[in-house]
Structure formats: structure tokens, C-alpha cells
Amino acid sequence: MADESAKKSGGGITKIVFFLVMALVLLSGLLFAPDHAGLAIHPMDQFKIAPLFGGEHMSWFTPTNETLWMGLTVVGIVLLLVIGTRGRAIVPTRTQSVAEMAYGFVYKMVEDVAGKDAVKYFPGIMTLFLFIVFANFLGLIPKSFTPTSHIAVTAVLAMIVFVFVTVLGFVKNGAGFLGLFWVSSAPLALRPILAVIELISYFVRPVSHSIRLAGNVMAGHAVIKVFAGFAGALGLFSFLPILAISAVYALEVLVAFIQAYVFTILTCVYLKDALHPSH
């Protein structure tokens, strides 16, 4: 017992020493950083949008760096789902089986979450999923640009879903779609209050839907950039932030997929509400 507690306290001391050393390293790095490097951390610069072919003027159709990377998502999708499946093999090649897995993954999601009658909207949901997942993963390439880190992009994606689902809800169910806001399982007195809450939550959907995606992607990229700035400033001790970057990058790979998945599955949930609004 004594031995164990000694070990434990020993571990605690090691930890404290480690963090002290880390703090000292960081501080010394900040204090004795080479002058020319400074702390030139501009984590948001990577999100800047600029015309692709130079020039200052940017109208609504000027190709930008964002246009390039959106185009590359299209290229990636074509490579995987068109070129990758050109063999139409019964026994698939590696690429073809990845394409089939993507198809099966989203198809099953639509079927399971939104129901069998939602399957006819599968191509649209597949479009959203593939665009987000490709944009996220291409955005993990150093020096690249991530369209999904922009709220304008994710807001449009979310608004497409919101408007489509709302219109579909009214077309399919007429006024019955309003039953979505009328919680029939609650006591009658509470229902109007709940209806207000439900209505607010309904209109907040596109906001959370879009900010969740853009926020996650942007935060991860910005954190990596901040650590990269430390790495530039710390000189000899730059291996510490580089280790941190590796860890954050691994997390970002996870986030890139999970956020695409979350966006898609929420789309399916909203679609289910539109098709079957009963509470």
C-alpha cells in the first residue's frame, strides 16, 4: 500500500515537473524567440479567399482558391465513383469496393434513419455527404483550402436541406406537417408552450446544422496553425508543438469524417420529420 501510494505521488511529481518544464520551454521560447520570426501566428489566414488567377477584383463568378478546391472535390468524386467503378466488376477492385461502401453507407443511413420512402432523395443526400467528406479530407492536405470551413458554404448546404425539407413536409402532409410542433403526448396545457419551443428549435436547425460543420473544421485547422506558429517561434523546442500538431491532425482526420457523417445523418433525421411529422 505504502509502496503504491509512493509510486502514485512519485507519478504526480513527475507530472508536475513535466508541466513545469513544458511551461518554461514555452515561456523561454516566447521570450528568446528569434526576432525575425516573432509570434507571427495568423491562424485565420488559411481561410482567406483570393482570386485564383491574381488580380484584386472579385466578382461573384471570379474563380478563387475556394473554386479550385471545390473543383477538386468534384475531381475526387469522379475519380472514386466514376473512374473507380468503370470496370463494373462483379468481384470489385479496391477502388470500386470503396465506392460501393460509400454508396452502401449513405444508402443504408437514408433507409434506416429516414425510412424506405426517403430512398428517392438518396442522390441528393449522397451529393451532400460526398461534397463534405471530400472537402474535409482534401482540406487536410497542407497548404490546401477547405470550403467546408466557411460558414457561407455550410449555411447554403444547411439552407438547401432546411428549405427542401420544409417544402417537402408541407407538400406531403399539408397542414398536418404542423403536427410536428404539436406534442400530442404532452399535457394539453403545456402544448402551446412546447409548440413555441419546437418552432424555435425547428428554425435553429439550419443554424446549428451549418455552424457545427464549419466550426469544427475551422477550429481544427486554426489549432494546427497556432501550433505551427509555436513551432516557428520555439526554435530548438519546436518538436513539442510538432508532436501536438501530429496529435491534432490525427483528431482532425477523425473529425473530417465524423462531421460529414453528422451532417448527413441530421439531414436524414430532418427528412424523416418531413415525411412522418407525427410526434
Binding site: 479567399i49 472579385m58 466578382s59 461573384w60 463568378f61 471570379t62 474563380p63 478563387t64 475556394e66 473554386t67 471545390m70 473543383g71 472535390t73 468534384v74 468524386i77 442522390p123 441528393g124 451529393t127 451532400l128 460526398l130 461534397f131 470550403p147 466557411h150 457561407a152 458554404v153 447554403v156 448546404l157 438547401i160
Partner: peptide
């Protein structure tokens, strides 16, 4: 600009 190119991209993918 972003919205225009996003819509173009989505339509092409679709």
C-alpha cells in the same frame, strides 16, 4: 462568389 461556386459544384456532383 462562394455561394455561386458552391451551387455550381453541387449541381455538377449531383
Amino acid at each position: 462568389n462562394q455561394i455561386f461556386w458552391l451551387v455550381v459544384t453541387l449541381v455538377v456532383i449531383y
